[in-house]
Write a protein that binds this DNA or RNA. Structure first.
Lengths: 248, 248
DNA sequence: GAGTGGTCTAGACCACGTA
DNA sequence: ACGTGGTCTAGACCACTCA
């Protein structure tokens, strides 16, 4: 949990927000209930309308309130909607746990996109691809196996980067602003080669995390990271509008 | 992608935000660069400071800007931070794909929390637990195996709910507002019993999704859902401040 | 001390959806 | 037509932090 549990909020709009939130959580205002109009809250709290509006806007962000013009603002139907999952930089994550990070660069080669792989051709654009394969180690133990493709037309300077000094993911974060990413999380049985590299049993369950990243419409990189399922979990903790998440 | 790509934003603070965002994404303002002071932007756009402030606040939410008093506002170092993962209601998800949803309620029993299980005792509080085990089916094929514990002191009316009519997750969403949830995603090898229920091979890799939900400080429910890894992925797509996610 | 962002006010006009 | 929320203004004071 990030925030202290019961600290009285300092600012007025936060107190108003907390006041409304408390009524909802206590069940006094059930889903679908119309909360007081903004001008009523203005009178109740003796403040300007913008302040009330800011408080409600926060509750809308948190998914607790729905506003409808000409009608009013209502307590939202609860939904298992957005859950914030943090998928951190592997190096930073290992270091933050006080463990020793090491990268084993298995291969790195420039090549043409494969025929019959429209994904690779989109990633390559007019240029070529950089294919990097590496193993992340934490305290000497395999932590994740990474296969990455980088579009050299999007990131030409990647060709000259030293990925044994800086892991490719970290390097890209530092060099390329991204606007969009798609993640896919799957469970797979490790094949023989993967199991060997990760030092796990053959066909042991692993988490496969695939991420494709764009800058604007330009596809920047596509990475697949495989984590031993027995050792590492993805954890996401959610509180409306404040979250804590990590990989354990 | 949810939002239309290049629609000119209607409101002023959105245009200001888009203007700043564009400079960052184009690389004109690199990470660490100090963007103009608010009073400068006020002059540049010919508007009130609150409008500029609202625009920047949005960029702070999106993680693109960091504000520092007395110093200025800066382009944030990009981080692979919050990724919004949508973990929807299974029934709603299956129905939204046009498939037939069916629930197989395997067991449902009221019982005491197990000794030596502090988790269960916290969940039970002063009362007992409701333990529900069910299988979600999509078009007749096993979709997920669910084991759920519900704290009857937190949700006493759950005891009389008909979980063969409404899946427990859906029922809880409709009846209990929640404030906090913790998710854990793991890969596991299916044991014999699980494999049998899910109609998959023994020790096939599965995604295990564990979720614990609170209302305030009160622990409401703890659920573990197991998905055949070969058939289903968790997908999350991220764009700063607007997202699309689903389970496939 | 000086200048930044953080918050707030007391108005105003507008867009929109309901009736 | 009406009343809601949505946006915006032109100020103001404060808190914080750097010099």
């Amino acid at each position: 949990m990030t925030a202290q549990p019961n600290a009285e909020p300092a600012t007025l709009h936060e107190r108003i927000r907390a006041d409304i939130e408390a009524k909802i959580l206590a069940g006094i205002w059930r889903p679908g209930h119309r909360i007081p109009f903004e001008h009523e809250l203005t009178a109740q709290f003796g403040c300007a309308r913008m302040t009330v509006s800011k408080a409600i806007a926060g509750l809308v962000d948190a998914g607790l309130i729905v506003r409808r013009r000409r009608v009013g603002s209502f307590v939202a139907q609860p939904r298992m909607q957005s859950v914030i999952l943090d998928i951190p930089d592997i190096q930073a994550d290992i270091l933050s746990r006080g463990e020793v990070y090491r990268l084993n660069l298995l291969s790195s080669q420039r090549r043409e996109p494969a025929r019959g792989q429209p994904d690779e051709q989109l990633l390559a654009g007019a240029g070529e691809l950089l294919a990097v394969r590496c193993l992340h180690l934490s305290d000497g133990r395999p932590f994740a196996l990474e296969d990455r493709l980088i579009g050299l037309s999007a990131v030409p300077e990647a060709e000259y980067a030293d990925f044994s000094a800086t892991p490719p993911g970290t390097w890209l974060l530092d060099h390329v602003p991204w606007t969009e990413a798609e993640h896919r999380i799957t469970a797979i049985n490790a094949d023989a080669a993967t199991a060997d590299l990760l030092a796990i049993e053959n066909s042991a369950a692993c988490l496969a995390l695939e991420r494709r990243t764009w800058r604007g419409k330009q596809h920047v990189t596509h990475v697949r990271q495989i984590f031993p399922g027995a050792a590492y979990d993805l954890v996401a903790r959610f509180t409306p509008r404040s979250s804590d998440a990590s990989m354990r």
